[in-house]
Each structure stands twice: as C-alpha cells, then as structure tokens.
Amino acid sequence: MPLIEKKANRKIDNEGYSEKIEVFQEICFKITSAIPEKYDQWNEAKISSRQMYFAGIATAIWKVDLLRKN
C-alpha cells in the first residue's frame, strides 16, 4: 500500500487503479505521487518490482545483507 493521507485513502478505498491515479498525483508524499508517472498498471508484478526497488535503496543506505544466513 502506498503512503497516502487518511482522507484520500477513504475517498479511493476500493476503487480501481485508473480511478486512483488522479488522487495519487495530488498526494503530498512524492513517493506516492510518482506512482502514476512510473506505472501504467498497478498489479502484483508492479508492486513487487516497486518493493524490490525500495529494498535496494534501503540496503544501500543501511548496508543490510538481505541474503544473510543465520
């Protein structure tokens, strides 16, 4: 779920992606407002791709080894 203000979330709660695009563009969180610019669809594959992108950024910042074995 992208970062989104409560009021906006209630407005688009169960709407489809095409209805959410306009609201996403107005969100104050840049990370969310950029979604329509980068994704023409919002499905499991796109969400997974976005998660991997942010995981890569996080591991670079915090030097976390995601493949660490216990």
Rank of each mutant, 00 (worst) to 15 (best):
D40I: 02
E26A: 14
T59E: 13
T59C: 11
S33H: 03
I47Y: 08
I31K: 03
P36W: 06
R68E: 15
C28V: 13
G16D: 13
I4Y: 00
W42S: 03
E22I: 10
A55E: 12
G56M: 11
K30G: 06
F29R: 10
I35C: 00
K20Y: 08
R50D: 08
K7S: 07
R50T: 01
R68Q: 15
Y53F: 11
L67W: 09
K30Q: 15
K63N: 12
I21S: 01
N43F: 02
Q51M: 07
V23P: 02
I27Q: 06
Y39Q: 02
L66Q: 10
Q41P: 01
M52F: 06
E5D: 11
M52V: 12
Q51R: 13
I57R: 15
T59Q: 14
K30I: 06
A8L: 05
K63S: 09
E22M: 03
L67M: 13
I35Q: 01
M1H: 07
R50K: 12
A45V: 10
E15S: 13
F29W: 14
E37F: 09
K11Q: 06
W42Q: 07
V23I: 15
A58T: 10
I31Q: 12
Q25M: 15
V64R: 09
A58L: 12
E15P: 03
K7M: 03
C28N: 15
E5N: 05
K11L: 09
R10F: 03
N14F: 03
C28E: 14
I47L: 07
P36V: 08
Q41M: 07
